[in-house]
Design a protein around this nucleic acid. Structure first.
Lengths: 218, 218
DNA sequence: GGATGGGTCAATGTATACAAGAAGGTTGAC
DNA sequence: GTCAACCTTCTTGTATACATTGACCCATCC
């Protein structure tokens, strides 16, 4: 089945917003973009609405579409929510996780270890993602899984950056192991706390990263 | 500022879906609806996309828009998530809530007590909503507040039904008081647990209500 | 008689044309 | 000289026309 052009365009624009090609507040001109993509304004407008749905652009009536990059405050808020949501996933997963899923988590952690040893952030990131996705799924709540994945996706570019910090990969892996232990023991509270801390640290690391970048710019 | 027609139509359709005018699986014919609302297909399609964003309709490419009422399983999942999300709000609010907000909560509970005494579910519902909304806000996380309100809104019609069950209003108020006590004491865990239980019970009540209706229909 | 293939039809996806509103510039008056 | 109002222009919102595709039905072949 061929995808609709609106979806293709929305994906392309989303990529550009994440990439930083478009800065916060930039206006997305409908005619310019439609010419660029070689389509009419109709599918492009649909794409913009899809982006507005994800809060990536703001649609001001009669004014146009404006890129809306989350500011530092909103990002911290999102990280806090992500930490709490992951804690919820952990709480539920501790009671519901299957043995095969536990084996998968062990496997993901093993590959993460390899990534740490080889100092390969990209590999670590991929297996880290798998680790978390497994927990989302094993929470046994499809609605929760979908919403969590959506938020995870929105924070993805920021989550990725902080892996470059020295020693963060090894620390992250240690946290993964604690999470896995709690899940294996079926300890809901421990799993929730471990996951909350794991993600909250990411937010803090990101915050310090932001501060560093800001200071460097001044 | 005049609202865009797409928004007006989206609201109208949303209302109909909630009202049960449209059943699950109903196809929303673009031309028929556009004639009904006296607009062209363009704003109507935008309205459908806005509904698809809220998961109220499913947009199948080349097939059309179909009403997508959540089934019993998905509803239970949503109630479970609502319970956990409210618990998160309670956890954060316990540390951050202001004195004026605590006073507002007392006031809301007082009005709820009046509603219980007078056996007025509508009044109770209004003050109950205020009670919960205050907690969402006092969690001190704008992103969390927005997302929580969205989910709250989606569950609103189902939440409302179960207030009709005998004795539920009084029980609900007792739970409110426990929540308020935990918040006043700044006890995060107690607040989280109280709120989780409070909402989870709503899900269970709703479940039994569903079962009753289903049995009555057979 | 059943199944498969082609054709027709209807509905969605896309393009374009038109209307309405907002922003900015220019001109006139005080 | 400055402020305000009007006009122009550009952009968004809406309507309509066209294209494309999926579904259904009938006919023909096995």
């Amino acid at each position: 089945m061929e995808k609709r052009r609106a979806d293709i365009i929305a994906d392309a624009l989303e990529e550009r917003i994440f990439n930083g090609t478009y800065a916060d507040g930039d206006r997305l001109d409908e005619v310019r973009l439609s010419e660029h993509f070689g389509v009419s304004r109709t599918p492009l407008r649909e794409a913009l609405q899809r982006l507005a749905r994800s809060q990536l652009v703001e649609l001001v009536p009669r004014r146009g579409a404006f890129v809306r990059q989350p500011g530092p405050v909103e990002l911290m808020e999102m990280f806090e929510v992500m930490a709490e949501v992951e804690a919820v996933c952990g709480r539920l997963a501790a009671k519901r996780i299957s043995d095969t899923a536990l084996a998968d988590l062990h496997d993901a952690n093993h590959k993460c270890q390899i990534a740490v040893d080889a100092q390969e952030p990209d590999l670590y990131y991929a297996e880290n993602e798998r680790f978390h996705k497994i927990i989302y799924r094993e929470a046994g709540n499809g609605f929760l899984e979908t919403e969590t994945c959506n938020l995870h996706r929105r924070l993805q570019p920021y989550r990725r950056q902080q892996l470059r910090l020295r020693g963060r990969m090894a620390q992250s892996l240690a946290e993964h192991k604690a999470i896995l232990t709690a899940l294996e023991q079926g300890d809901s509270e421990a799993a929730a706390n471990a996951l909350r801390g794991h993600v909250a640290i990411q937010g803090e690391k990101f915050h310090s990263l932001m501060a560093t970048l800001k200071n460097a710019a001044e």
